[in-house]
Simulated assay, not measured.
Amino acid sequence: MITRDIDAFIAVARTLKPDFGPATARAAFLVSPDGFVRAEQSAQDNRYMADPGAFDADAALREHHALHRALSQELPVVCFPGSEATPDAVFPNNVFATTRVDGEPRLIVGRMRHPVRQREAERPDIRGYFRDLLGYAETDLSGQAHPCELTGALVIDRAHGIGFCGLSERCDEAGAALMHAAFGLRVTLMFDLAPGEYHTNVLLAVLAGRAALVCPHSLQGDVSRALHALYGPHVVTLSPAEQAAFAGNAIALTDRSVWMSRRAHRRLAEASRRQLEEGAGFTVRGVPLEAIEAGGGSLRCCVAEIF
């Protein structure tokens, strides 16, 4: 089921058991910020991107290496090289995603809106790693007409098979339906992002199938009501200040901890931290990413999960 009807969505989603698959990934991959500069095409609809003078490629490389080390404390993490021809490739989760459908592993390749990012989908090394080395079947959405920027646009509760898909210039309704089918989801709620927003995962995170971070002021429709119906007291409502620091762009890579950037960690309100730590049972971890955040994304955008 894929719908805009929140009541119909809640009615189905509340019946689902956490038996769709593992709530968190078994590994992850990154793409190094080689050639990290402002991509003018992406800046057209990404208001979080900094001016060209704020990009520091050397600092971004150092931060990314530290991120790799930090995440490797919790699960295996592979890093692919970047390229000057693809300056946004440091955010691979928009282009590549994995899932398991009926137990079979699948690599999904998204259709990016901007040509500078469409080049990322052509990479033979990442496709070959999953196809030839790991034996994943490939679902290639990159050649069709409808933008569907994978786990940038689509936030997934992997335990229950539930999708939350925000529509913008980066994902239309047809693209949402293609992703719903590609991930084999049980139910997906579609809703519009507020004007000026580009990706859902800057505004919403579902954490290990039991908690959520949400910026309701940037989502159209009563998405918070659906979240509270599913995750109850473990829904953390973020303020505009927390959102601006990328606190919504977080990820749980195990059922024990939530990762976000250092800036987000510092701006997280004490009440929000208590909900995550004392309420939902997570440890909140922060990693310095100020240079990478100039590119208009943060920690979750850097992480492509391997299921």
Rank of each mutant, 00 (worst) to 15 (best):
T15W: 04
P87N: 04
D51K: 15
A11F: 01
F130V: 03
E84C: 00
A241H: 10
L141H: 10
A182T: 07
H114E: 14
E293F: 13
L203S: 13
G161H: 07
V95Y: 01
E277W: 10
G281W: 08
G232L: 11
A241V: 10
A211T: 08
L141F: 08
G128Q: 02
E278G: 11
P105V: 03
I126G: 05
I292Q: 12
L253T: 05
V37T: 14
A250R: 08
L253I: 13
R186H: 03
P22A: 14
D51P: 08
E197T: 07
S42V: 15
R285G: 12
L289W: 13
A59W: 07
V303I: 15
D102G: 12
L30I: 06
E122S: 09
T98E: 09
H64S: 10
F36W: 11
Y136M: 09
G152K: 01
G286H: 13
A8C: 01
V223W: 04
R225K: 06
A181L: 07
T151W: 01
R62W: 05
P288T: 12
D7I: 00
V109M: 05
R14Q: 14
E290T: 15
S298Q: 12
C79I: 11
H64N: 07
G143Q: 09
A205I: 04
A97F: 11
F29W: 08
A57T: 14
A212E: 05
D34S: 09
A89N: 01
F91P: 01
Q118E: 13
Q73G: 10
A264K: 09
A269W: 08
D192K: 12
M190W: 00
P115L: 02
L185H: 08
E120K: 10
V78H: 12
L150I: 11
C171Q: 04
V214H: 12
R26E: 15
Y198M: 10
D88W: 00
A25W: 03
F80N: 05
V31E: 10
G175T: 10
A280R: 06
F91L: 10
L67W: 02
F96W: 13
S218F: 14
H146W: 03
F29P: 02
L141T: 11
V187K: 00
A13N: 01
A304I: 06
R256H: 15
C171S: 08
P240A: 09
G221F: 03
F191E: 01
M260L: 15
C148S: 15
V214W: 12
E270Y: 03
E149Q: 03
D34F: 10
F20M: 05
A145N: 11
H160Q: 09
A247F: 06
I108S: 00
M112D: 02
G286I: 08
E138R: 06
A70H: 11
N93Q: 01
G248P: 14
R123H: 04
S298C: 15
T24L: 02
L268V: 08
L230C: 07
V101N: 08
A145R: 14
D125P: 02
T3Q: 03
D34V: 12
A57K: 07
S224H: 04
P52W: 14
P33R: 00
F36S: 02
Y48S: 15
R4I: 00
G128S: 06
R123D: 09
E293P: 04
M1L: 09
L71T: 02
E138K: 01
Y231H: 12
C165S: 05
T86F: 11
G221K: 01
L167D: 03
F191R: 02
